[in-house]
């Protein structure tokens, strides 16, 4: 029942978008009807440049994400487990985190030109903090009673990691990864759009400046689908990895 309503909602949304330009309420030059966008999308699917751009975007996105997640996990666990380190870095983390990564665009261009590394810098910077902060929260959230229990049983360093820190921090870390995934996509596309790194973002800018409006909308739809896919995959992964967790089990 619920799924049907969702499909109905999608159809209605598409119908309204189709009707607006067809009835002349919105100029079709600004908002082409979805049927024309679909044609443009099929047209794109026949062009090798589209697949190359998609591949470039995926590569920048996933490489940046992998670097950010690895760095965030390692830094988070190390900083989180040493109280002194945690105290000393807290203010620095709080200061660096809200710096918008787009502020780094001019620097990235200056240092790396318009290549993939310029965009990677933005992606890694933005995604890293998402993971780091969540892991820090997670490592700090160990239940006091569980910690006292571990003390009483004289668990060693490794056993503590495995049975105390890992299960507590995992849900947080996965949340961090999920947030980082969508942020990384946003920044990958941003870099392509503004800096001109090869990828879907650059194709969108090109389509816009050459007046290929349906193609531009088709590419925007593709980035949206990438985002949806990322959400679905990370949420499914979260559910799988946390089957034992009370929040998922219920």
């Amino acid at each position: 029942m619920k799924a049907w309503l969702g499909v109905l909602g999608l159809l209605a949304f598409g119908g309204v978008l189709e009707a607006l330009p067809r009835l002349g309420l919105v100029p079709a030059g600004y908002l082409p009807p979805p049927s024309r966008i679909a044609v443009a999308l099929a047209d794109q699917a026949h062009q090798p440049t589209f697949w190359a751009a998609l591949g470039d975007t995926l590569r920048t996105w996933l490489t940046g994400l992998a670097i950010a997640v690895a760095a965030g996990l390692v830094c988070g666990v190390v900083i989180g487990s040493v109280p002194l380190l945690r105290e000393a870095t807290a203010s620095t983390v709080e200061f660096l985190r809200p710096i918008p990564s787009v502020a780094l665009i001019p620097l990235a261009v200056l240092l790396y030109g318009t290549g993939i590394r310029a965009t990677l810098l933005l992606v890694v910077y933005a995604a890293f903090w998402q993971v780091l902060v969540q892991v820090l929260h997670g490592v700090g959230d160990v239940d006091p009673v569980a910690r006292d229990t571990a003390d009483s049983y004289r668990l060693g360093r490794l056993a503590r990691m495995r049975y105390l820190v890992w299960p507590t921090a995992l849900p947080y870390a996965l949340t961090g990864v999920r947030l980082a995934t969508s942020v990384a996509l946003v920044l990958a596309v941003t870099g392509e759009l503004v800096i001109g790194t090869p990828g879907l973002g650059r194709e969108i800018a090109v389509a816009q400046s050459s007046g290929a409006v349906p193609a531009m909308y088709a590419l925007v739809v593709v980035t949206g689908l990438l985002g949806v896919a990322a959400n679905l995959v990370t949420r499914a992964a979260e559910r799988r990895a946390l089957v034992w967790h009370p929040a998922v089990r219920t």
Binding site: G6, L10, V189, L193, I204, V213, Y217, T223
Partner: peptide, 26 residues
């Protein structure tokens, strides 16, 4: 909620910066 959920999920998933060229058009 059931009616709008898939539409909203899709609109949310579009990376906001790609809206810049779209909005410029309009």
């Amino acid at each position: 909620r059931a009616l709008t959920e898939p539409v909203l999920e899709f609109l949310r998933a579009i990376p906001p910066p790609v809206l810049v060229p779209v909005v410029i058009l309009v």
